[in-house]
Amino acid sequence: MRAVRIHQYGGTETLTLENIEKPVINDDDILIQVKSAAINPVDWKIREGYLQTFIPYQLPVTLGWDVAGIVTEVGSKVSEFSVGDEVFSRPAIHRDGSYADFIAVKADEAVLKSSKLDFSEAAALPLAGITAWQCLVDVANVEADQRVLVHAGAGGVGHLAIQIAKAKGATVIATASAANQVLLKEFGADQAVDYTKAPLNEQIEPVDIVIDTLGGDVQKLSWGLLKQGGIMVSIVEQPDEALAKSHQARGAFVFIEPSSRILKELNGLVEADQLKPLIEHHFTLETIVEAHLQSQSGRTRGKIVLDIS
């Protein structure tokens, strides 16, 4: 089978398209013929070696941890899936990934995909969708009467977080550049904020929850946008405990793990027409370098998808 692997850490020159053996599944695995995979920032951060102390790999490794496809083999201890099932997953990040014709994943990391999603859309949903759900629901416990601020609302996690917060009945404020203001409204944001127009504290009334997808100065400035008792949840860096205390607020950091429970919740929102991923760019295994460069540019609206087969 084809697979994009790295044999050493570094730039895009380390990405190699190779022919390797298909994965051999364990008793609790399923083998998925990959129809689509998605590109996420964690992919090129791993490639660059930024996470090698956090996630130690024995190279070479196949990258990619968003997948949608068709089950072709089922482990002897797996009863919930059959050959031919259409599934999607955010598989464990310590195993070989989805930039390949086939991937082996634990059965409890996958779910049947909604018929309202094609394979590209299904592949775009797991990692970013689980992240947004964990931030809003599992950590922040978003409620219908709350105000939620989503930074970078046109991005991969941001555009899904807007839709999930709206589905929970919250009032959603989202930030983006001037070019993406209409898009924020299309995702359901009640207030679209152009962060280049004026300081955020002049445009945004206090909120209960901040979803921080940017870190750095934006995170620091966002403490002043929180109500007393509010919470900032970051997917970039651990919020400063001293700053949280000084603003009588809380901070939390989320680095996701596979969750079929959340994938089922996301499927439910899809079925209810309350959630749909945006895909701005399609690439192939042969154009993986261009896909990584696009992700690294930080200018993608929604998600980047690899069409595999």
Rank of each mutant, 00 (worst) to 15 (best):
R2D: 08
R2H: 14
V4R: 08
I6F: 02
I6C: 07
Q8L: 03
Y9W: 11
T14W: 06
L15C: 05
E21N: 14
V24L: 12
V24K: 15
I32M: 08
E48T: 07
T53K: 15
F54T: 12
P56E: 09
G64K: 06
G64W: 08
G64D: 04
W65T: 01
V67Q: 03
A68C: 10
A68Y: 13
E73D: 14
V78H: 07
S79A: 10
S82D: 13
S82I: 13
S82K: 15
V83W: 01
G84E: 03
D85K: 02
E86T: 11
F88L: 13
I93Q: 08
G97Q: 11
Y99C: 02
D101T: 10
A104I: 08
K106H: 13
D108C: 11
A110Q: 05
V111C: 07
K113C: 04
S115T: 13
S115N: 15
S115R: 13
K116D: 13
K116Q: 14
D118T: 09
F119T: 03
E121S: 12
A122W: 02
L125K: 09
L125M: 13
P126R: 05
L127G: 01
T131V: 12
Q134S: 12
C135Y: 11
D138M: 00
N141R: 14
D145M: 08
R147L: 00
G153V: 03
A154Q: 05
A154M: 09
G156H: 02
K168Y: 15
I173N: 00
I173D: 02
A174T: 03
T175V: 05
V182S: 14
G188P: 04
Q191D: 02
A192C: 09
A192E: 10
L200Q: 09
P206A: 01
I209E: 01
I209T: 01
V210K: 02
D212F: 11
G215A: 07
G229K: 05
G230I: 08
M232R: 04
I235K: 05
V236E: 06
V236S: 03
E237I: 08
A242C: 00
K245F: 12
H247K: 03
Q248I: 03
F253R: 08
V254Y: 09
I256K: 03
L263A: 03
K264D: 13
G268V: 05
A272E: 12
L275G: 05
L278F: 14
I279S: 02
I279T: 11
E280Y: 02
T284V: 04
L285W: 07
V289D: 14
V289R: 15
E290D: 15
G298F: 13
G298A: 04
R299A: 06
R301A: 14
G302S: 04
K303C: 01
L306K: 07
S309Q: 15
